[in-house]
Design a protein around this nucleic acid. Sequence first.
DNA 1: TCTTGACCTTCCCACTACTGGAAGGCTCAT
DNA 2: ATGAGCCTTCCAGTAGTGGGAAGGTCAAGA
Lengths: 129, 129
Amino acid sequence: MNIGTVSKLSGVPAKTIRYYESVGLLPDPVRSENGYRTYGDQEVETLKFVQRSRKLGFKVKDVAALLTLWQDKNRASGDVKALAVSHIQEVEERIKELEAIRSTLLHLVNRCHGDDRPDCPILEGISEK
Amino acid sequence: MNIGTVSKLSGVPAKTIRYYESVGLLPDPVRSENGYRTYGDQEVETLKFVQRSRKLGFKVKDVAALLTLWQDKNRASGDVKALAVSHIQEVEERIKELEAIRSTLLHLVNRCHGDDRPDCPILEGISEK
DNA sequence: TCTTGACCTTCCCACTACTGGAAGGCTCAT
DNA sequence: ATGAGCCTTCCAGTAGTGGGAAGGTCAAGA
C-alpha cells in the first residue's frame, strides 16, 4: 500500500502522515525500490487510532503516549486513565473560559441596537471594562 | 513614553507590541532621536482595547477591524454587532465541540478501573469507535 | 513508442499569535 | 569607566497542517 491508499483508508491526509513520521509519532516505514513509503493494514489501524485521539483533542505528544500504551500489552490502565483525566480537566477549563467569553459578548450584543447610528455599547464595553 | 512604560501601563508585553506593529495592527510609532519608539496616553488606551478584545477571543484580524470601528466616530454600530455576533457563533460552536469531547472522555474514563491491569476501555474505545 | 495523468519524493513557505534569545546600542548612576 | 537596565533588529521555534514547486515513477491509451 502506498501513502495515498493508506490516506484514503485512514482518513488522514498524506501530508499529515509524513508530518507524523517526521515528528516521531509514527516509525519510519518500509520503502519500496522506487523510494515510495509502503504500509500494511496495521498502519491503517494505527492512523485511525491517531485520528480519533486527535479528534478527542489530544495533542500529538499525548497521542504518542497513548499510542505507546495502546501497543503495550502489559500497560497499566491507570496510566491511560491519568492521561485522559488530565485532558478532561483541560477541556473543562477551556469550556469555562469560552462560556465566560460568550456571556460577556452576549451581554454586550444585547445592549447594542445594531443599526446605522455610531452609538455602540459593544465598543464602549470593550474600552471601558 | 518608551515601550517599556507603555507595556507596564497597558499590560501588553513589549515584544507583543512590536509584533502588533509588525503585522499592521498598530501604526508605526514616532521615534525619538536614538531610535526608540515613543508613545502617548492614547496608545496605552489603544493597547488596552486590543488586550481586552483578544481576551474576548477575537482574532488579531478581527481586532484590527474593531479598532478601526472604535476610532471611526461615524461608524455604524451594526458593523460592530455583526462582527460580535459572528464571533459568538464561533465560540458557541467551539463550546459544543469541547462538550462532545468532554462527554466522550468522561464516558470512557468512567468505565476504566484505572489500576495496574492492562485492560483499558479507554484505549479500546478510541480504537474501535 | 510516446505521452499523459496520477501517483510519489523532498523541500520550502505560509498561517496564528506570539515568545525567547542573541548581538549590539543607549542612558544613567555610581 | 563600568554595570544595570533599558532599547534596537533579526532569527528561530511553537502545533499541525495546507499549498505548491521541482522532479522521479508508473500504468494505460493513441
